[in-house]
Simulated assay, not measured.
Amino acid sequence: MSLCQCAVKHSESDMEGCCSAPGAGLKVFLHWRGEEEEHYQAYTQGTPSAEEICIDVAQKIGITPVCYSLFALYDPQTKLWFPPNHVFEIGKDTTTSLSL
């Protein structure tokens, strides 16, 4: 699993070193972040499970392990909640946006 941290406020040229292409990969939006903080966590390749992504994001924002199970990934376009064992196939053609 390759992890890439890019903020929505970055320009395309700033994102080249971080993400393979603007909009590529799986993005998990963090709606509660402040204006100066990153707006999403991006994954550009690999096969992480929904649980692995939730734990990764929770660790990055300081949520304790006791509370990891309180979070899940949601796709607002399809109105679908992903179970913890759902595996995402992330490649160069993936353009998925989820909410935590």
Rank of each mutant, 00 (worst) to 15 (best):
T95W: 00
N85R: 05
C67M: 13
I90S: 02
C18N: 04
K60P: 00
M15D: 12
Q59I: 04
G62V: 05
C67H: 15
L3G: 03
E12G: 02
G34N: 09
T44E: 11
L100I: 12
H10V: 01
G34R: 09
C67T: 08
Q59L: 09
C6T: 11
S97F: 12
A21M: 02
T44H: 02
S69R: 13
G17T: 07
I61V: 15
V57R: 05
P76I: 04
V28N: 10
L100N: 02
D14H: 11
P76W: 02
K92N: 02
S69T: 07
Y74D: 05
S69K: 14
I61E: 09
H31F: 01
I53L: 15
E35M: 07
A7K: 13
L3F: 12
F71Y: 15
V8T: 12
L30R: 06
Q41M: 12
P83T: 13
Y43R: 03
L30N: 03
I61C: 10
W32G: 15
H39E: 07
S49T: 15
L73N: 13
P84D: 04
C54H: 02
V28I: 15
L80Q: 13
I61R: 14
P65Q: 11
C4P: 01
L98F: 12
G23T: 05
I63Y: 06
C18I: 15
D93H: 11
G46V: 01
D75G: 05
L26A: 00
A72L: 04
E16Y: 06
L3S: 06
E38I: 07
W32A: 12
E51N: 08
R33V: 07
T94P: 00
C54E: 06
T96K: 13
E37T: 07
V66K: 14
T47E: 11
A50N: 06
E52Q: 15
V8D: 12
I63V: 14
Q5R: 11
C67S: 14
Q77L: 14
Q5W: 09
Q41Y: 14
P84Y: 06
E52M: 11
V57A: 12
Y43N: 01
W81S: 09
Y40R: 08
I90Q: 00
G46D: 02
S11E: 05
D56E: 10
S20G: 10
I90A: 01
P84W: 04
G23E: 07
L26D: 00
L26V: 07
T47Y: 03
V28D: 09
S99C: 13
W32D: 14
V66Q: 13
C18E: 07
Y40C: 15
T94K: 02
R33E: 08
C19N: 11
L26H: 02
A42D: 03
H10C: 08
L98I: 09
E35L: 08
S97V: 07
A42W: 04
D75R: 04
A24E: 11
T44F: 02
A42I: 00
C19L: 14
L73D: 12
H86N: 06
H39G: 15
A42M: 03
H86M: 06
N85S: 14
